[in-house]
Design a protein around this nucleic acid. Structure first.
Lengths: 150, 150
DNA sequence: GATACACCCTCTAGCGACTAGAGGATCAAG
DNA sequence: CTTGATCCTCTAGTCGCTAGAGGGTGTATC
């Protein structure tokens, strides 16, 4: 049996059924077969593609980058510099995010540690949140958007 | 002049005009005055509230948590343990995210470093993405959702 | 008084990467 | 022949905004 249903594909790849359908909808999968009763069929190549997507998502690549990575693979004779560039860019992004989260963490810890657990009126956490000037490390302004990593 | 327009409020707080309107829409601001011609007016207390929201967002608190923090402040005589708990929970969350991003970073670096920059057919980056078993650190499976931090 | 232009209003839709649910068809087992 | 699992499509919701349409208002200048 070369081809499997979407439910089996989900079990084999670890991607949820609706997510697989979503990937198809946005064009990450194409040319899928269907049964006579219109059910999707996944062959070995489709499963490989799904596993590739899943692993890249786990490593934090955005679907758009993954789409590019998949497209680049159609011609294996070309140099892989474009792939390298995407990965490096992503690494730089991850680095940035770690740095800004660490800034945040320092500030949060300082804030929590200075709280004497009394009345809200005296709460240092509220005070700090009210007044940015109480932050020793003003850099947390530079915190950046994070998303898409499960 | 005790009250200012939304544009001035935006300049004073550093929050964009549509974002301020959005905060009002989701109920973070209430009881705002309006001019005869229906324009919003922001008093000192409103500006303070906006600054509180902004700073909490910069520190990565979600709007829902901020709503709770704002609600808790209406009774300053109560103990601040609930506030403390929200902050600690958030800190734990930030910690988790840092850890999983660091796992990702290790894996990405290893992947990039092993690429010999030849043909796509030989690209180690693609290979690693195709096969999770090539990851030394299997923990990147535990990567978690990140979002909402500018 | 007309005009220009900045600012304001409401309402709707879009982003990314899914997730949830309605309402219905089909399949395999008992 | 019925039950229950699985499948289909379609729509809408999540979060925290952002962008745009289409219009009203406020102020300064001519």
């Amino acid at each position: 049996m070369a081809e499997v249903s979407i439910g089996v594909a989900a079990k084999l790849t670890g991607i949820k059924v609706p997510t697989i359908r979503y990937y198809e909808q946005i064009g990450l999968l194409s040319g899928l077969k269907r049964t006579d009763s219109n059910r999707r069929l996944y062959g070995a190549a489709d499963l490989d593609r799904l596993r590739f997507i899943k692993h890249a998502r786990e490593l934090g690549f955005e679907l758009d980058a993954i789409r590019t990575l998949l497209d680049l693979q159609v011609d294996p004779e070309k140099p892989c510099s474009a792939i390298d560039a995407i990965a490096r860019e992503h690494l730089a992004d991850v680095d940035q995010r770690i740095a800004s989260l660490q800034g945040l963490k320092r500030e949060l810890r300082r804030m929590i540690e200075s709280c004497s657990r009394g009345r809200i009126a005296d709460c240092r956490i509220i005070e700090v949140l009210q007044d940015h000037n109480q932050c020793r490390d003003q850099r947390h302004l530079g915190a950046r958007k994070e998303r898409g990593i499960r």
